[in-house]
């Protein structure tokens, strides 16, 4: 299974959280809230394209909206592949970071 890059991971989780409302502006704001980074749309869509190519997300086109100058919103949703990838990433994370708190506890408290 190909590993997710950090950016891809963040994006996938954001989409997960947003459920039905995962479109450009919302994803950007979510990431901003979660990581504090302000991701430009160019980058955002680039990564979304890569995710779509890998088959982790699906794309839906929504209704045209006037505040977008008449353009429609493009929504993204996780596919089953995507959820599996996330799951895999989470498990890997757990294994690697297992016992992290104990490891650093000693240093923090000086023991």
């Amino acid at each position: 299974m190909k590993e997710l890059t950090k950016a891809e991971e963040t994006l996938l989780i954001a989409i997960l959280r947003l459920k039905d409302n995962a479109y450009g502006v919302a994803i950007k704001q979510q990431i901003q809230k979660a990581t504090g980074k302000s991701l430009p749309y160019g980058t955002l869509y680039f990564i979304l394209e890569q995710l779509t190519k890998k088959g982790y997300v699906k794309r839906f086109t929504g209704e045209p909206k006037p505040e977008r100058g008449g353009r429609s919103r493009i929504y993204y949703a996780l596919t089953s592949e995507g959820s599996r990838a996330l799951e895999h990433a989470y498990k890997m994370q757990q294994k690697i970071w297992n016992g992290y708190t104990e490891l650093t506890w000693g240093e923090k408290t000086g023991k």
Binding site: Y23, G24, V25, K28, Y41, G42, Y45, F46, E49, T61, K65, E67, R68, G69, R71, S72, R73, I74
Partner: peptide, 16 residues
């Protein structure tokens, strides 16, 4: 600059 991602990028940017 947006190539194929015109609708998404332009729309989102305009919305924001």
């Amino acid at each position: 600059l947006s190539f194929s991602k015109k609708i998404g990028i332009l729309g989102d940017t305009e919305e924001e």
